[in-house]
Protein backbone atom coordinates (compact mmCIF):
# COMPACT_ATOMS: atom_id res chain seq x y z
CA UNK A 1 0.00 0.00 0.00
CA UNK A 2 2.82 2.41 0.81
CA UNK A 3 4.24 1.69 -2.57
CA UNK A 4 0.91 2.52 -4.21
CA UNK A 5 0.70 5.86 -2.47
CA UNK A 6 4.33 6.59 -3.17
CA UNK A 7 3.99 5.80 -6.87
CA UNK A 8 0.85 7.92 -7.14
CA UNK A 9 2.59 10.78 -5.37
CA UNK A 10 5.60 10.48 -7.65
CA UNK A 11 3.29 10.61 -10.64
CA UNK A 12 1.43 13.65 -9.35
CA UNK A 13 4.71 15.36 -8.49
CA UNK A 14 6.10 14.70 -11.95
CA UNK A 15 2.92 15.93 -13.61
CA UNK A 16 2.71 19.17 -11.65
CA UNK A 17 6.45 19.77 -11.26
CA UNK A 18 7.61 19.11 -14.78
CA UNK A 19 4.37 20.40 -16.24
CA UNK A 20 4.77 23.72 -14.43
CA UNK A 21 8.37 23.99 -15.54
CA UNK A 22 7.44 23.36 -19.17
CA UNK A 23 4.63 25.91 -18.96
CA UNK A 24 6.95 28.52 -17.49
CA UNK A 25 9.35 27.87 -20.36
CA UNK A 26 6.43 28.47 -22.72
CA UNK A 27 5.74 31.73 -20.85
CA UNK A 28 2.42 30.52 -19.47
CA UNK A 29 1.50 30.69 -15.83
CA UNK A 30 1.11 27.13 -14.51
CA UNK A 31 -2.03 28.27 -12.71
CA UNK A 32 -3.57 29.25 -16.03
CA UNK A 33 -2.20 26.18 -17.75
CA UNK A 34 -3.40 23.61 -15.22
CA UNK A 35 -6.54 25.63 -14.68
CA UNK A 36 -7.37 25.35 -18.37
CA UNK A 37 -6.45 21.68 -18.30
CA UNK A 38 -8.70 20.81 -15.37
CA UNK A 39 -11.49 23.06 -16.58
CA UNK A 40 -11.29 21.44 -19.99
CA UNK A 41 -11.39 17.98 -18.47
CA UNK A 42 -13.99 18.45 -15.76
CA UNK A 43 -15.61 21.82 -16.38
CA UNK A 44 -19.03 20.62 -17.51
CA UNK A 45 -20.83 17.29 -17.90
CA UNK A 46 -19.96 16.98 -21.54
CA UNK A 47 -16.29 17.47 -20.73
CA UNK A 48 -16.45 14.92 -17.95
CA UNK A 49 -17.90 12.52 -20.49
CA UNK A 50 -14.96 13.17 -22.84
CA UNK A 51 -12.60 12.59 -19.92
CA UNK A 52 -14.30 9.30 -19.11
CA UNK A 53 -13.97 8.40 -22.77
CA UNK A 54 -10.22 8.87 -22.51
CA UNK A 55 -10.27 7.01 -19.20
CA UNK A 56 -11.93 4.08 -20.93
CA UNK A 57 -9.50 4.11 -23.82
CA UNK A 58 -6.61 3.98 -21.34
CA UNK A 59 -8.21 1.56 -18.93
CA UNK A 60 -8.42 -1.38 -21.35
CA UNK A 61 -4.76 -1.44 -22.38
CA UNK A 62 -3.65 -0.55 -18.83
CA UNK A 63 -5.47 -3.59 -17.49
CA UNK A 64 -3.85 -5.68 -20.21
CA UNK A 65 -0.40 -4.33 -19.44
CA UNK A 66 -1.00 -4.90 -15.72
CA UNK A 67 -2.04 -8.50 -16.29
CA UNK A 68 1.21 -9.20 -18.13
CA UNK A 69 3.18 -7.28 -15.51
CA UNK A 70 1.67 -9.40 -12.75
CA UNK A 71 3.07 -12.43 -14.58
CA UNK A 72 6.45 -10.71 -14.70
CA UNK A 73 6.13 -9.78 -18.35
CA UNK A 74 6.55 -6.34 -19.86
CA UNK A 75 4.01 -6.02 -22.66
CA UNK A 76 4.86 -2.87 -24.55
CA UNK A 77 2.88 -4.12 -27.52
CA UNK A 78 -0.53 -2.88 -26.38
CA UNK A 79 -0.44 -0.20 -29.07
CA UNK A 80 -0.23 -2.77 -31.86
CA UNK A 81 -2.84 -4.94 -30.16
CA UNK A 82 -5.21 -1.96 -30.02
CA UNK A 83 -4.66 -1.38 -33.73
CA UNK A 84 -5.36 -4.99 -34.68
CA UNK A 85 -8.36 -5.28 -32.35
CA UNK A 86 -9.73 -2.09 -33.84
CA UNK A 87 -9.04 -3.18 -37.39
CA UNK A 88 -10.78 -6.50 -36.90
CA UNK A 89 -13.78 -4.73 -35.43
CA UNK A 90 -13.75 -2.24 -38.29
CA UNK A 91 -13.69 -4.93 -40.95
CA UNK A 92 -16.16 -7.33 -39.35
CA UNK A 93 -18.49 -4.59 -38.17
CA UNK A 94 -19.00 -3.63 -41.80
CA UNK A 95 -18.93 -7.13 -43.25
CA UNK A 96 -21.22 -9.10 -40.94
CA UNK A 97 -24.91 -8.73 -41.75
CA UNK A 98 -26.20 -9.33 -38.22
CA UNK A 99 -28.57 -7.48 -35.89
CA UNK A 100 -26.95 -5.35 -33.17
CA UNK A 101 -27.70 -7.70 -30.32
CA UNK A 102 -25.56 -10.36 -31.98
CA UNK A 103 -23.26 -8.13 -33.95
CA UNK A 104 -21.89 -6.12 -31.04
CA UNK A 105 -20.74 -9.03 -28.85
CA UNK A 106 -19.37 -10.95 -31.82
CA UNK A 107 -17.40 -8.01 -33.15
CA UNK A 108 -16.10 -7.13 -29.67
CA UNK A 109 -14.95 -10.71 -29.16
CA UNK A 110 -13.34 -10.78 -32.59
CA UNK A 111 -11.40 -7.61 -31.72
CA UNK A 112 -10.27 -9.21 -28.47
CA UNK A 113 -9.30 -12.36 -30.34
CA UNK A 114 -7.17 -10.38 -32.79
CA UNK A 115 -5.34 -8.59 -29.97
CA UNK A 116 -5.02 -11.90 -28.17
CA UNK A 117 -3.52 -13.51 -31.22
CA UNK A 118 -0.95 -10.75 -31.40
CA UNK A 119 -0.09 -10.92 -27.70
CA UNK A 120 -0.11 -14.70 -27.87
CA UNK A 121 2.36 -14.59 -30.73
CA UNK A 122 4.83 -12.75 -28.49
CA UNK A 123 4.00 -15.24 -25.74
CA UNK A 124 4.62 -18.15 -28.07
CA UNK A 125 7.98 -16.71 -29.11
CA UNK A 126 8.89 -16.38 -25.46
CA UNK A 127 7.62 -19.77 -24.35
CA UNK A 128 8.98 -21.67 -27.32
CA UNK A 129 12.22 -19.88 -28.16
CA UNK A 130 12.91 -17.86 -25.04
CA UNK A 131 12.55 -14.62 -26.97
CA UNK A 132 12.55 -11.48 -24.84
CA UNK A 133 8.94 -10.34 -24.67
CA UNK A 134 9.90 -6.66 -24.54
CA UNK A 135 11.57 -6.88 -27.91
CA UNK A 136 8.95 -9.23 -29.36
CA UNK A 137 5.99 -7.05 -28.38
CA UNK A 138 7.78 -3.89 -29.49
CA UNK A 139 8.54 -5.32 -32.92
CA UNK A 140 5.04 -6.69 -33.27
CA UNK A 141 3.76 -3.14 -32.76
CA UNK A 142 5.43 -2.05 -35.95
CA UNK A 143 4.27 -5.11 -37.81
CA UNK A 144 0.68 -4.60 -36.61
CA UNK A 145 0.65 -1.03 -37.82
CA UNK A 146 2.14 -1.92 -41.20
CA UNK A 147 -0.26 -4.84 -41.56
CA UNK A 148 -3.23 -2.62 -40.78
CA UNK A 149 -1.98 0.08 -43.12
CA UNK A 150 -1.62 -2.48 -45.88
CA UNK A 151 -4.96 -4.18 -45.35
CA UNK A 152 -6.89 -0.97 -44.94
CA UNK A 153 -5.03 0.76 -47.74
CA UNK A 154 -5.46 -2.23 -50.02
CA UNK A 155 -7.88 -5.15 -49.75
CA UNK A 156 -10.28 -3.54 -47.27
CA UNK A 157 -10.02 0.05 -48.35
CA UNK A 158 -13.12 2.11 -48.49
CA UNK A 159 -13.44 3.25 -52.09
CA UNK A 160 -13.06 7.00 -52.34
CA UNK A 161 -11.87 7.54 -48.76
CA UNK A 162 -9.17 10.13 -48.35
CA UNK A 163 -7.44 8.34 -45.52
CA UNK A 164 -6.61 4.70 -44.93
CA UNK A 165 -9.79 3.73 -43.20
CA UNK A 166 -12.70 1.33 -43.40
CA UNK A 167 -16.17 2.40 -44.46
CA UNK A 168 -18.28 3.65 -41.56
CA UNK A 169 -19.79 0.96 -39.35
CA UNK A 170 -23.55 0.41 -39.61
CA UNK A 171 -25.41 1.86 -36.65
CA UNK A 172 -26.15 -1.69 -35.48
CA UNK A 173 -22.46 -2.08 -34.64
CA UNK A 174 -22.25 1.17 -32.67
CA UNK A 175 -21.89 0.72 -28.93
CA UNK A 176 -24.90 2.31 -27.21
CA UNK A 177 -24.21 5.73 -25.70
CA UNK A 178 -24.87 5.90 -21.95
CA UNK A 179 -24.98 9.68 -21.57
CA UNK A 180 -27.09 11.31 -24.28
CA UNK A 181 -25.38 13.86 -26.50
CA UNK A 182 -21.90 12.62 -25.57
CA UNK A 183 -19.66 9.98 -27.02
CA UNK A 184 -19.50 7.99 -23.78
CA UNK A 185 -20.69 4.48 -24.56
CA UNK A 186 -21.17 1.27 -22.61
CA UNK A 187 -17.49 0.59 -23.21
CA UNK A 188 -16.90 2.57 -20.01
CA UNK A 189 -19.07 0.15 -18.04
CA UNK A 190 -17.38 -2.74 -19.80
CA UNK A 191 -13.95 -1.46 -18.77
CA UNK A 192 -15.02 -1.05 -15.14
CA UNK A 193 -16.48 -4.54 -15.13
CA UNK A 194 -13.29 -5.89 -16.61
CA UNK A 195 -11.25 -4.21 -13.87
CA UNK A 196 -13.46 -5.79 -11.23
CA UNK A 197 -13.15 -9.16 -12.95
CA UNK A 198 -9.38 -8.94 -13.06
CA UNK A 199 -9.31 -7.94 -9.42
CA UNK A 200 -11.23 -11.10 -8.63
CA UNK A 201 -9.06 -13.23 -10.91
CA UNK A 202 -5.83 -12.00 -9.31
CA UNK A 203 -7.14 -12.33 -5.78
CA UNK A 204 -9.17 -15.46 -5.79
CA UNK A 205 -8.61 -17.79 -8.70
CA UNK A 206 -6.01 -20.49 -9.17
CA UNK A 207 -5.13 -18.93 -12.50
CA UNK A 208 -4.45 -15.54 -10.91
CA UNK A 209 -2.49 -17.17 -8.13
CA UNK A 210 -0.25 -19.01 -10.58
CA UNK A 211 0.13 -15.89 -12.69
CA UNK A 212 1.29 -13.86 -9.70
CA UNK A 213 3.62 -16.64 -8.55
CA UNK A 214 5.23 -16.81 -11.98
CA UNK A 215 5.69 -13.05 -11.88
CA UNK A 216 6.88 -12.65 -8.31
CA UNK A 217 9.14 -15.67 -7.97
CA UNK A 218 9.52 -17.59 -11.23
CA UNK A 219 11.88 -20.24 -9.92
CA UNK A 220 9.73 -21.00 -6.90
CA UNK A 221 6.68 -21.07 -9.17
CA UNK A 222 8.33 -23.50 -11.57
CA UNK A 223 9.19 -25.81 -8.71
CA UNK A 224 5.62 -25.56 -7.48
CA UNK A 225 4.43 -27.13 -10.71
CA UNK A 226 3.56 -23.95 -12.57
CA UNK A 227 4.44 -24.12 -16.26
CA UNK A 228 6.23 -20.84 -16.83
CA UNK A 229 6.08 -21.07 -20.62
CA UNK A 230 2.36 -21.71 -20.67
CA UNK A 231 1.78 -18.96 -18.13
CA UNK A 232 3.78 -16.50 -20.23
CA UNK A 233 1.83 -17.45 -23.31
CA UNK A 234 -1.54 -17.21 -21.59
CA UNK A 235 -0.68 -13.95 -19.86
CA UNK A 236 0.52 -12.26 -23.03
CA UNK A 237 -2.40 -13.59 -25.04
CA UNK A 238 -4.91 -12.33 -22.46
CA UNK A 239 -3.04 -9.07 -22.13
CA UNK A 240 -3.26 -8.64 -25.89
CA UNK A 241 -6.92 -9.65 -25.90
CA UNK A 242 -7.78 -6.95 -23.37
CA UNK A 243 -5.89 -4.32 -25.36
CA UNK A 244 -7.51 -5.60 -28.56
CA UNK A 245 -10.92 -5.35 -26.92
CA UNK A 246 -10.06 -1.75 -26.10
CA UNK A 247 -9.22 -1.14 -29.75
CA UNK A 248 -12.56 -2.64 -30.79
CA UNK A 249 -14.44 -0.37 -28.38
CA UNK A 250 -12.70 2.69 -29.82
CA UNK A 251 -13.81 1.68 -33.30
CA UNK A 252 -17.35 0.69 -32.29
CA UNK A 253 -17.99 3.34 -29.68
CA UNK A 254 -15.96 6.37 -30.72
CA UNK A 255 -14.72 6.51 -34.30
CA UNK A 256 -17.42 4.32 -35.85
CA UNK A 257 -14.87 3.30 -38.44
CA UNK A 258 -11.37 1.94 -38.32
CA UNK A 259 -8.53 4.28 -39.05
CA UNK A 260 -4.89 3.34 -38.45
CA UNK A 261 -4.60 6.47 -36.33
CA UNK A 262 -7.22 5.27 -33.85
CA UNK A 263 -4.82 5.45 -30.92
CA UNK A 264 -2.70 8.47 -30.07
CA UNK A 265 -0.41 6.18 -28.06
CA UNK A 266 -2.88 4.71 -25.57
CA UNK A 267 -0.85 1.50 -25.53
CA UNK A 268 2.21 3.32 -24.25
CA UNK A 269 0.50 5.68 -21.84
CA UNK A 270 -1.18 2.55 -20.48
CA UNK A 271 2.19 1.45 -19.11
CA UNK A 272 2.30 4.56 -16.94
CA UNK A 273 -1.33 4.05 -15.95
CA UNK A 274 -0.69 0.44 -14.92
CA UNK A 275 2.37 1.41 -12.89
CA UNK A 276 0.71 4.35 -11.18
CA UNK A 277 -2.13 1.98 -10.32
CA UNK A 278 0.50 -0.37 -8.87
CA UNK A 279 -0.85 -3.16 -11.10
CA UNK A 280 -3.96 -3.38 -8.90
CA UNK A 281 -7.01 -3.34 -11.18
CA UNK A 282 -9.10 -1.19 -8.87
CA UNK A 283 -6.36 1.42 -8.41
CA UNK A 284 -5.77 1.38 -12.13
CA UNK A 285 -9.29 2.76 -12.58
CA UNK A 286 -8.27 5.83 -10.60
CA UNK A 287 -4.95 6.07 -12.40
CA UNK A 288 -6.71 5.86 -15.76
CA UNK A 289 -9.05 8.62 -14.66
CA UNK A 290 -6.05 10.77 -13.69
CA UNK A 291 -4.43 10.22 -17.05
CA UNK A 292 -7.80 10.63 -18.75
CA UNK A 293 -7.95 14.11 -17.23
CA UNK A 294 -4.53 14.86 -18.67
CA UNK A 295 -5.44 13.48 -22.09
CA UNK A 296 -8.72 15.31 -22.46
CA UNK A 297 -7.71 18.45 -20.58
CA UNK A 298 -4.59 18.85 -22.70
CA UNK A 299 -6.71 19.83 -25.70
CA UNK A 300 -8.49 22.60 -23.88
CA UNK A 301 -5.20 23.67 -22.35
CA UNK A 302 -3.77 24.17 -25.80
CA UNK A 303 -6.84 26.04 -27.03
CA UNK A 304 -7.43 28.20 -23.97
CA UNK A 305 -4.02 28.72 -22.37
CA UNK A 306 -1.88 28.29 -25.45
CA UNK A 307 0.22 25.55 -23.87
CA UNK A 308 1.28 22.98 -26.45
CA UNK A 309 -0.29 19.61 -25.85
CA UNK A 310 3.17 18.12 -26.08
CA UNK A 311 3.65 19.23 -22.48
CA UNK A 312 1.24 16.48 -21.49
CA UNK A 313 2.99 13.94 -23.70
CA UNK A 314 6.23 15.00 -22.03
CA UNK A 315 4.97 14.53 -18.49
CA UNK A 316 3.36 11.22 -19.39
CA UNK A 317 6.67 10.00 -20.75
CA UNK A 318 8.47 11.14 -17.62
CA UNK A 319 5.97 9.33 -15.41
CA UNK A 320 6.72 6.13 -17.30
CA UNK A 321 10.44 6.66 -16.90
CA UNK A 322 10.15 7.57 -13.23
CA UNK A 323 7.99 4.59 -12.30
CA UNK A 324 9.25 1.93 -14.69
CA UNK A 325 12.82 2.95 -13.96
CA UNK A 326 12.25 2.84 -10.23
CA UNK A 327 10.54 -0.52 -10.41
CA UNK A 328 13.33 -1.90 -12.54
CA UNK A 329 16.00 -0.66 -10.14
CA UNK A 330 14.15 -1.96 -7.10
CA UNK A 331 13.73 -5.35 -8.72
CA UNK A 332 17.33 -5.56 -9.75
CA UNK A 333 18.37 -4.79 -6.22
CA UNK A 334 16.22 -7.38 -4.56
CA UNK A 335 16.95 -10.00 -7.22
Amino acid sequence: MQRTVRDALIAVAVVFGVGSLAMLLAHVSPINGFGALLDGALGNPSEVAETLLQTTALLFPALGVALAFRAGLFNIGAEGQIVLGGMTAGILGVALPLPGLLLIPIVLLAGAAAGGLWGGLAGFLKARFGANEVIATLMLNTIALLLATYLIGGPFKQPGAGAAETPPLPAAAWLPVIIPNTRLSISFILALALAATLWYVFRRTVFGYELRAAGDAPEAARRAGIDLGRTAFTALALSGAIAGLGGATIVMGVLHRFNTGLSPGYGFIAIAVALVGNLEPLFIIFAAFGFGILQSGAIAMQAEANVPRDVVTLVEGLVIIALAGRRFIVERRTA
Binding site: R212, A213, D216, A217, E219, A220, A221, R223, T334
Partner: peptide, 8 residues
Protein backbone atom coordinates in the same frame (compact mmCIF):
# COMPACT_ATOMS: atom_id res chain seq x y z
CA UNK B 1 14.39 -18.03 -4.65
CA UNK B 2 13.43 -21.63 -5.18
CA UNK B 3 10.82 -22.08 -2.48
CA UNK B 4 9.27 -18.82 -1.36
CA UNK B 5 7.59 -15.83 -2.90
CA UNK B 6 9.17 -13.25 -0.64
CA UNK B 7 6.58 -10.54 -1.35
CA UNK B 8 3.74 -12.82 -0.31
Amino acid sequence: HEALVLDW
